[in-house]
């Protein structure tokens, strides 16, 4: 990582223009590269540029050029104005949110930038999944938001696994997983409406972040049900690819490359699917599964049928 350059971004030639809002009075901007995608961000208040750093994707690099693939814009109401909406966030020319405070505006901006990078990264296939490393191989936990990915990843890290991501498995053309090690977003509170999201580093759980790409050893398709016993079934390679495709960000944009990356990722992996109870009860069993040589596991002896 480096220091964010101060420069006003402009779209690369041939990319969709956001000219309606281009005419507004933007006063500060910056450009960076993440996973090969060039991103620009601009503000009407220069002071906001200093707050951007913590919201950038992991592994970002400053750009020397102001030409970018996508521009995000944050327009905030002047200080002292009695506006109900404090910030407006745009992706290109599309408004994404009317934020009631700056924290919410940056939260939306961060999420939008991550989605853009995940969809457009050349040579990479982003799968919505938690990832840890263990004995030189990766464990993937694909799933939707609030499916318990982060909880399970945090528990695996507490048990000694190396942290790679709680949001995206970044697959290369060989099916290896690269880190996307943003802070873990831990949800606290009993209800989605009343929860608080706390950001925690892997080091807070006694762990550390992985750096080098890993082959996939285990894919865990687990849905949380309080009190459930972990009795997974083993999926075939095709079933596994189908399940993972449902969480693959560029699947519609680049189906051939996505399928190839998934095929290679699961080629030597065990893929388990089932309901799990508390993460603490499952984590040790998953780590044990990876420690065993392939084909000797007694976990997931069942087989899943198809329609």
């Amino acid at each position: 990582m480096g220091i964010l350059p101060s420069m006003m971004p402009r779209l690369r030639h041939g990319w969709a223009s956001s000219d309606r809002i281009d005419r507004w009075a933007w006063r500060a901007g910056t450009c960076f590269d993440a996973y090969g995608v060039r991103v620009g961000v601009r503000f009407n208040d220069p002071a906001l540029l200093e707050r951007l750093g913590p919201h950038l994707p992991p592994g970002w690099q400053p750009c020397a050029s102001s030409e970018v693939d996508q521009i995000f814009s944050v327009w905030v109401s002047p200080r002292g104005a009695r506006a109900r909406t404090v910030g407006r966030v745009y992706a290109g020319g599309q408004r994404r949110a009317l934020a009631k405070d700056l924290e919410q505006a940056f939260e939306v901006l961060e999420s939008e930038i991550r989605q853009t990078v995940a969809a457009a990264a050349p040579g990479r296939t982003f799968v919505h999944a938690g990832v840890v490393g263990w004995h030189g191989r990766a464990i993937l936990v694909p799933g939707r938001s609030r499916s318990g990915k982060t909880t399970l990843v945090a528990e695996l890290v507490k048990s000694g696994a190396v942290y790679y991501s709680d949001e995206f498995a970044v697959l290369d053309r060989r099916g290896r997983v690269h880190p996307f090690a943003k802070s873990l977003s831990i949800r606290e509170g009993g209800c989605a409406r009343h929860e608080i999201v706390r950001r925690r580093r892997a080091e807070d759980f006694g762990g550390f972040c992985g750096v080098r790409p890993l082959p996939v050893a285990l894919v865990v398709l687990a849905s949380y049900r309080p009190g459930a016993e972990w009795q997974p079934v083993t999926l075939t390679r095709g079933q596994a690819m189908l399940e993972m495709l449902a969480h693959t960000v560029p699947a519609r944009l680049r189906p051939e490359a996505s399928l190839l990356a998934l095929e290679r990722a699961v080629a030597r992996a065990t893929v388990l699917q089932g309901e799990r109870g508390e993460a603490s009860a499952v984590a040790a069993r998953l780590l044990e599964q990876v420690r065993q040589p392939a084909g000797t596991s007694r976990v997931g002896a069942g087989a899943k049928g198809m329609r």
């Binding site: 991550r114 989605q115 995940a118 969809a119 982003f126 919505h128 939707r144 938001s145 995206f168 095709g238 079933q239 189908l242 495709l245 449902a246 969480h247 693959t248 960000v249 560029p250 699947a251 519609r252 944009l253 189906p255 198809m306 329609r307």
Partner: peptide, 13 residues
Amino acid sequence: ASIVVPTPAEAAV
């Protein structure tokens, strides 16, 4: 077995 493939926004949401 069949699925409807998600849009990028649906998959990354």
